[in-house]
């Protein structure tokens, strides 16, 4: 049973037809697959089949731990969306429902390798000297969530210091618990600041700066 129906396949093929460079979908599962691992694997393969620009590789989190470490992948199902280089775009949990849009957007962004962010955002990101980790918690039924995910992924592409994760709250309940997620989207930056809801770019930028200030004060 394919996950994508004919109508969706046609639309995805059309969108991926405009990719401006190669994209690799690097997926992690394990021998005894997790609840959504096999579906995620199937989704990645179905998407890759729709474009000559896209390749899919499937790794085992345990057997291929060196590759997982290299990409900083610590849980499954995971997808790293890689363009000319690894920009730090990650999906933890199946990008289904509204999040399928985020996956397509991430592929477009990774293929292009450049992003349309405001000058102020690009300047702040270009000055980063320490790593920034953005974790965007989502549910597949949240229409506001892709905006938060797409913005975080664009920030990852704009700076080698940024890694941005989409995290499906229902597949990683321990993380949802740890970060007290009871509403989505919730973006956690460097463990210290968080944003409720789909905030506009200047608001996210300000929260990012707040996280950087908090780190400086800590040191």
């Amino acid at each position: 049973m394919p996950l994508l129906d004919a109508e969706v396949k046609e639309e995805v093929a059309r969108r991926l037809g405009t990719l401006t460079g190669p994209v690799r979908l690097v997926m992690f599962t394990q021998e005894i697959e997790c609840e959504y691992c096999s579906e995620t694997r199937q989704l990645v393969q179905e998407v890759a089949d729709l474009s000559a620009h896209v390749t899919a590789t499937v790794y085992d989190l345990v057997a291929d731990s060196a590759r997982a470490d290299e990409l900083g992948v610590d849980k499954i199902p995971a997808i790293a969306v890689i363009g000319e280089r690894d920009y730090g775009i990650r999906f933890y949990g199946i990008p289904s429902g509204y999040e399928f849009t985020s996956l397509l957007a991430a592929m477009e962004t990774a293929a292009a390798g450049e992003v349309d962010l405001a000058q102020a955002t690009l300047e702040t990101l270009s000055r980063l000297s320490t790593p920034v980790h953005m974790q965007v918690f989502v549910t597949p039924t949240c229409p506001y969530c892709p905006q938060a995910v797409v913005l975080a992924h664009k920030m990852a592409v704009a700076s080698p210091m940024v890694q941005s994760d989409m995290i499906s709250a229902q597949e990683f309940p321990h993380l949802a618990m740890k970060y007290q997620v009871m509403g989505v989207p919730r973006t956690v930056i460097n463990e210290v600041t968080h944003i409720e809801g789909a905030a506009d770019e200047p608001v996210v930028l300000e929260k990012l700066r707040e996280a950087l200030r908090a780190r400086r004060e800590e040191q």
């Binding site: 549910t139 949240c142 229409p143 969530c145 709250a169 009871m182 509403g183 409720e196």
Partner: peptide, 16 residues
């Protein structure tokens, strides 16, 4: 408590 129990989007947050 917005996002920590207060919500205006049941489709988004019902799961929690």
């Amino acid at each position: 408590f917005y996002g920590r129990g207060v919500s205006s989007c049941a489709t988004c947050d019902g799961f929690f």
